[in-house]
Each structure stands twice: as structure tokens, then as C-alpha cells.
Design a protein around this nucleic acid. Structure first.
Length: 519
RNA sequence: CGCGGCGUGGAGCAGCCCGGUUAGCUCGCCAGGCUCAUAACCUGGAGGUCGUAGGUUCAAAUCCUACCGCCGCAACCA
């Protein structure tokens, strides 16, 4: 496919100073839906994730544990990938910023920015704490009466040489870029925030170097210094697709189609990052999507509160699809959402168990037990709609729009409300289980009509709950291979060449419950 | 005057950008039905001054203004 459109997306790369939690996972799950959707729609997708390791915090954490920093990072990367794999996150590559390749490519980029005149030597002065070994903001200084809040010691004024990236030089260009590209920052509220930030506060040059650190990437033109973590972390997005040593791949995928990030790091991605790229003569990414946060029982999650939830605990209780469904259905991706065990069970039972899974059971069981697993008289004919006035093409357009704009909760709501609820209602109205006793042909038609919402819903749900959707699709002898289905296939019914058959594995004449009740 | 978000029946949300049918959905509650299915499913019902006060309009949950209340960020914690 020479003209196949490409789709390059990334998530933020995580600090491996603690294990992933349901907040970090929220981002990956949302990004994964997009990646899976784009693959379905025929894009050549490249989905990049990774860990952000070149930071003092990581080396400190490793030291605390008495481990070699690199070994610690590798171990954490393994743990992160275990969680992402358990959630069926379909990333194509996972970058560790401590890898030699990343470092080498990173240096090339920085050298280029330096050669282009956007990095210059300067001096950074601020309030320094010897205990924390870091600078504190003026605000911390004034609010704590000149002391370090953690060490209760006076902060000292300290100046040190550094390298500054001339971010201020790009202020006007950034503003013009935001205005010329309304979709560059999503959702819109974040865009307004960034515009107002630049218009009111403006952008200052940023210190992109650190001294006295062993761990990290050396500044190529002055090895006394290491590169400040943000400047190196963002570069993952291009080193991960070949910047620096694989020009062809890089040119194929860059610019990124979407960077998925948390709302807290919007400014790094929307201001610093495009400016860095421009400084090196590259294009800005096409879109930055800032998602919301997940609370735990209405409370903010944090180490200090000790209320962090590990995704693996939830998966162990249910499964990856249920996990994905809950967060995507309950937490509006652009805004904040809330997790609670009770709500999780509620959503699981209602939508997945009672509505989707149970509909399959209702249809397949009757077909298997009373019609021998075949729906006679269905070859060569299209199913009839189960609800009057239902427009499948319009629904597909609606869901597609929601997915492309990351309104996942609304996409899922639409599938439930417009396809699956009406289908269950149709079963009650038409009573195929009664009809089958006197008029098997009529019952066959009713059941056949019901296979269509199952098929359509499964296609639309494929990016969200890939395993379950496949199980449902595979329960009936639909002609089109699962790997080939696209959203457009949900817009019009499939006409079977031969009578539709039940292909699900049956136990006692019934399919195994897709989403058994949580014990 | 730092920035931003939110306030819709008991709980959680959608609708608001592009004003216009009886304000929609899930859960919960009450009553009934059904029995194919995962104690499931369907129907009906109670319950809402759409934060408050003004304004624009033939018409406002929806647009404008002011105010009240809650929350987040800014300050390592995604």
C-alpha cells in the first residue's frame, strides 16, 4: 500500500520512580483506543511509549535501593511494560531514555540547536537547598520564610553557569501557530489556557542544563554539563522513530499526529516542544491532546495520601477489557474522572454483563438449543433493523466523530444506547424463545435480525474492548475476517452467502458468559 | 484583580459551542410483566425552580452580565 496514510502517536513517557497507577494507565488506554481505531481504518500506525529515566530522582531512588541506576531503570521498564501488556496496550515501541541510541540521537539534536544559535551560555540564579540539592522557586522561598519546606533550613542564594534555550524567541511564532491551527491543542480549554499564558505571562528562556550529575546525557559541546530532563525527554518522540540515524523512518512518520499527555504537562508540549523542533529546523507536531486525571473515590491520588491504585489489582479482579471499558466509559477523557470499586462493579455488571454479554447469550442459546446452531433461511438476505428509525450509517459517523476527538465516553454511550439497549428490548418484544416453538422460520429471522446489532456493536467496540469484541464477533459465522473489519462495515448489514451459524464454543448448549458476575 | 474547570430529579453524567418537540442516559427506589439469557431482560411510576439574580429573544439548561458555592493547577506527586 504505497499511499497508505500514516498515523504517528505517542503517550507521555513516565518517570520510573514508582510503579504505574490507574492515572498513568488512563492515558495509555485512551491512546491505545486511538491507535487501534486508526489501524482499523487503514492507517500505518506507529505508537510510541517509553520511560523517562535521565533524571536525578531516578538515580536517587536507585541509590536508596542500593541498585545500579541502569539496572534499576531496566527493571522498572520491565514492570511498566508488564502492566501495559496486561492492559493490551498496542504500542509499537517502548523507549528507555537511558538507552545509548536515544542519547546519541539526542546529542545530535542538541548540537543542531546549538549550531543554529538557539542555545547560549548564561547563568542561573535562584534559591538553593543543600538538602534537596535543587533550586526552589521564589514562591517557595517567600511562602516558607526563606526556608526549605522539607529540610527546614534556610535556602541560599546561588548562581551557577548554565545553558539557556532561547524559548522567548519563539513566542510570537507559537502564538501564531496556535491561532492558525485551532486543533493543535485539544481540548479547547487547554488551548485557551496556553494562549492566555503566552499573552499574559510570556515565555522566558529556559535553563536546559544541569551540573554535578553523573546520571544523564552529557551536553555534546560542553561535557561538564548534563541535559535537563525535559529537553531530553521530549526528544524521545523523534529519536523513537529514527531521528539521528534512520532518516527514512523519521521522515515517514514525523510530524506526530497526536501526542497524548496529562493536563499538567501541557505547556512543555505546546510551547517548549514546538520551539525546540523549530530551533532544529523540524516541523511542530500536528496535535497535542491533554487528558484529565483520575481520582480515587473523589479524592486526588498521590503518594502522600497513600491512595494510589495499581491497575493490576483491578485486572486481577476482572479483566483487561473490563478495565478499559470502565475508565473509557466513566471518565471523560478530556476531563477528570473518578474511580471507585463500587462504581466499577456497577458499570461492569450493567453495560458489559447485562447488556453486551447477556445479549449474546440470549441470541446464541436459543439458536443453539432450538435451531441446532443454524439460522435457516438467512442466506442471501439482509437482516431487518431491530428498532424503527435506526440509522446505522449516522451512528457510525457519530461514533467515529467521538473517537477521533477522544470523546470515548460518548462513543461508548452511543453504542450502548443506540444499538445494544434497543436490541435487548427487541428480544422482549418479539419473543424468539416463544416463537421458536411454533414457527422456527420466524424465530430464525428474529434471531438473525439480532445478530446485526451484535456484529455492528462489536465492530464499533473493537478499539475499546478488543478481546471481548472479537469473542462476540467470532460467536457467529460472519464472513468478513475480524482482522479486516472497519468502522464502515457497521454502517450496513452483512448479507451472508450461506445460512448464518453459531460458531461459539458451547458448554451445555450455552456460550460461556463473556463477563461473569464479579465475585 | 494569577490561571482554569464545575454547579442539571437520591448518586454519577449527557445535552450548552450551532437557542425551539413531553430536559436524555446509567445506577438506586416503587409497582407490574416476562422467563430465552450471566438472580438476566422488558414496561410503567415517583422524583428536577437545569446554582442565584437580571438581560437578549416570539422562544434560554443552551447566548450575555453580575453574583454565590465547590474543585483543580500554579508548589516533585500523571
Amino acid at each position: 500500500m504505497p499511499d497508505q496514510p500514516k498515523w504517528f502517536q505517542t503517550t507521555a513517557i513516565d518517570y520510573p520512580n514508582s510503579r504505574p497507577h490507574i492515572g498513568t494507565a488512563f492515558e495509555k488506554v485512551g491512546a491505545d483506543v486511538q491507535a487501534r481505531y486508526r489501524r482499523m481504518e487503514g492507517y500505518a500506525v506507529f505508537f510510541l511509549m517509553g520511560n523517562d529515566e535521565n533524571t536525578v530522582k531516578v538515580s536517587k531512588r536507585a541509590a536508596e535501593l542500593g541498585q545500579d541506576t541502569q539496572a534499576y531503570c531496566d527493571g522498572m521498564a520491565r514492570q511498566f511494560r508488564e502492566v501495559w501488556d496486561a492492559l493490551d496496550i498496542s504500542y509499537d515501541t517502548f523507549i528507555q531514555t537511558s538507552s545509548e541510541r536515544h542519547k546519541a540521537c539526542c546529542r545530535k539534536f542538541i548540537q543542531k540547536v546549538y549550531d543554529n544559535g538557539y542555545i547560549e551560555k548564561g547563568s542561573y540564579e535562584g534559591w538553593y537547598c543543600d538538602g534537596c540539592e535543587e533550586f526552589k522557586s521564589d514562591k517557595v522561598h517567600t511562602e516558607n520564610a526563606g526556608n526549605c519546606p522539607t529540610h527546614r533550613r534556610p535556602l541560599v542564594r546561588r548562581a551557577e553557569p548554565c545553558y539557556l534555550f532561547k524559548l522567548s524567541a519563539f513566542q510570537d511564532r507559537l502564538l501564531a501557530h496556535y491561532k492558525a491551527n485551532p486543533d493543535f491543542i485539544q481540548p479547547e480549554s487547554r488551548r485557551n489556557e496556553m494562549i492566555s499564558l503566552i499573552e499574559t505571562e510570556g515565555l522566558r528562556d529556559v535553563n536546559i542544563s544541569r551540573t554535578g550529575e553523573d546520571w544523564g546525557i552529557r551536553v555534546p559541546f560542553d561535557p561538564e554539563f548534563t541535559i535537563y530532563v525535559w529537553f531530553d525527554a521530549l526528544l524521545t518522540y523523534i529519536t523513537g522513530i529514527g531521528y539521528g540515524d534512520d532518516e527514512a523512518t523519521f521522515r515517514r512518520y514525523w510530524p506526530a499526529d497526536t501526542h497524548f499527555i496529562g493536563k499538567d504537562i501541557t505547556r512543555f508540549h505546546c510551547a517548549l516542544w514546538p520551539a525546540m523542533l523549530w530551533a532544529a529546523g523540524e516541523e511542530a507536531p500536528r496535535k497535542v491532546f491533554s487528558h484529565g486525571f483520575v481520582n480515587n473515590n473523589g479524592q486526588k491520588m498521590g503518594k502522600t495520601l497513600g491512595n494510589i491504585v495499581d491497575p493490576m489489582e483491578i485486572i486481577a479482579r476482572s479483566n483487561a477489557d473490563a478495565y478499559r471499558y470502565f475508565f473509557l466509559r466513566e471518565c471523560p477523557y478530556p476531563s477528570d474522572g473518578d474511580y471507585s470499586g463500587q462504581r466499577y462493579e456497577e458499570v461492569y455488571t450493567t453495560d458489559l454483563g447485562n447488556t453486551y454479554g447477556n445479549l449474546l447469550s440470549r441470541v446464541v442459546t436459543v439458536a443453539a438449543k432450538s435451531l441446532g446452531g443454524v439460522l435457516p433461511g438467512t442466506a442471501g438476505r439482509p437482516p431487518e433493523p431491530v428498532a424503527a428509525g435506526f440509522d446505522p450509517a449516522a451512528l457510525v459517523d457519530e461514533v467515529r466523530g467521538h473517537v477521533e476527538n477522544c470523546r470515548y465516553n460518548q462513543a461508548l454511550a452511543a453504542v450502548m444506547q443506540k444499538v445494544l439497549y434497543p436490541a435487548n428490548k427487541y428480544v422482549d418484544e418479539t419473543k424468539p424463545f416463544t416463537v421458536v416453538k411454533t414457527d422456527p422460520a420466524a424465530a430464525s429471522r428474529i434471531l438473525f435480525n439480532l445478530t446485526e446489532p451484535l456484529r455492528a456493536a462489536s465492530i464499533l467496540l473493537k478499539p475499546f474492548i478488543p478481546r471481548s469484541a472479537e469473542t462476540v464477533y467470532a460467536a457467529l459465522s460472519f464472513a468478513k475476517p475480524w482482522a479486516d473489519v472497519r468502522y464502515a462495515d457497521a454502517a450496513s448489514p452483512e448479507v451472508p452467502a450461506a445460512d448464518l451459524r453459531v460458531t461459539a464454543e458451547l458448554v451445555d448448549g450455552k456460550p460461556r458468559p463473556l463477563f461473569p458476575r464479579l465475585g
